[in-house]
Write a protein that binds this DNA or RNA. Structure first.
Lengths: 253, 253
DNA sequence: ACATTCAAATGATAACGATCAAGACCGGAA
DNA sequence: TTCCGGTCTTGATCGTTATCATTTGAATGT
């Protein structure tokens, strides 16, 4: 797969889809409020838009690979993306699931430290590092926003270290479901029937477990009346308080 | 311990130790080159120094606790610090060991997300978030440097997620030793007899293992001729290539 | 030198999650 | 509809690491 990408950023088609006369970033609707382009002055948005490149990508599309020259930063407009790192023998660790408004692609040594792949059909905004750097100092609010988002990412990564290093399978899954639920709420979606746009394998590689353990844990939580599994790809948080207790490591329950 | 802190930032003594006539940050010697105060103009350093507070802390001193109001950012001048998060039942995950030049204490919601504790006697520089924020926009290079350091921290955290989620005990220990060795080199110390200023318990809580497993793994690696354990708190990297192979997950070996 | 204390190493056993192996389910194509 | 490919679930067993228990060792103080 991905040998013949049906669409990519190079295709001018993507740019043509954006009405140049429209207020820049109008396309982004809600996302404007939470993405890194939020909180900017009209002038800043205009300037930012001039170096932006929008694209619609299909599901399971590799945006870039670990080690690729890091030329762009991305912002998710709509859809979902996963970031992962690999060991030489194929073991995989997913380091993040991204949704509308999330940013990715920052790198220091000219090479991405992870692979980025869409989970579902996804719209992205792309910015060139070089051009952003060139505007350095001219868009203080943007820089500050990117900084803040990076600090948030770091804190989230630290939470995940606690999960990976010290939580049980049950606690890991509970934490994961709550995180997804909260994230859905941020996007104005209901907290409870949570959509899981990723496969069991993805969940396993995010939580440091195997597919089988993830599956068994879902089944157990369902048996215990903590969650419901109405349809593939959807979870009902029947007992959110119970989930929270589990997630925080309240031994019993 | 820490019930009667023998020294702290509030004590004016710490400030008196700094010669106000000396070029600011002269005390920091080498650290100046790698800390976040590096790469600043003379004017910026002067301004930064005006809101700085230096302190010498003893070993095993709690600098702040998870949940405390986040009022300061810190930079390690000399010594070593560990950052950790706790679960309600006491399970602990160390999310980082910090050395000269490292920064910590960034927070978003007014509360530190982790506890910070010295490993050994340590000198710190402290800055008030409020004052730094007040200077926002006036010290672009400082902001950029802090951003860069945060991105680096994030990438390091992502590496650690791969370790915690997907590496074996042996691979974890190998990775840890290599990381310490590289870090020592950055500080101009030799790569090979690496100092371990932290306890086995700290290492275990950093790698998501138990004390016993860490101990056994050290013993094994020694038996296999990959490392040497000349004295408590020191490790010789006998076979660095072997360690690297292990760390990257080269199944065999 | 010896007692005391705490950290580290080692040993024995258990458990959680991994691995191996079927079988169930679901969606898409003919 | 039926077949086919995949993912997900469930079952049986194994193994790595955790847990429990003890010994060794190193540092500190008397």
């Amino acid at each position: 797969m991905n040998l013949m990408p049906p669409l990519d950023f190079e295709a001018p088609k993507a740019d043509r889809d954006i009405d140049p006369a429209a207020p820049p970033c109008r396309n982004c609707d809600v996302v404007r409020e939470i993405a890194f382009c939020a909180d900017l002055s009209a002038d800043e948005i205009k300037r930012l838009a001039s170096v932006r490149c929008h694209a619609q990508l299909p599901a399971h599309f590799t945006i870039f690979r670990e080690g690729d020259r890091a030329e762009h930063v991305y912002s998710v407009s709509h859809g979902a993306v996963k970031l992962y790192k690999l060991l030489s023998d194929g073991r995989r660790q997913i380091i993040g699931f991204l949704f509308s408004g999330d940013m990715f692609g920052l790198a220091l040594d000219d090479g991405y430290a992870y692979t980025a792949e869409t989970l579902v059909a996804t719209q992205l905004c792309r910015f060139t590092h070089r051009k952003l750097d060139a505007m350095q100092g001219q868009m203080p609010r943007l820089e500050r926003r990117m900084f803040t988002m990076t600090v948030k990412d770091l804190m989230s990564a630290q939470e995940q270290m606690l999960l990976l290093g010290r939580k049980t399978a049950r606690e890991k899954v509970a934490t994961f479901l709550l995180k997804l639920s909260r994230r859905a709420q941020v996007q104005g979606l209901p907290a409870s029937p949570v959509a899981l746009p990723m496969s069991r394998a993805d969940i396993a590689d995010y939580l440091g477990l195997t597919i089988e353990t993830v599956s068994r844990t879902f089944t157990q939580l369902k048996k215990d009346g903590i969650i419901g599994l109405p349809a593939s790809g959807h979870v009902v948080l029947t007992d959110e308080a119970g989930l929270k207790e589990l997630a925080e490591g309240a031994s019993a329950a």
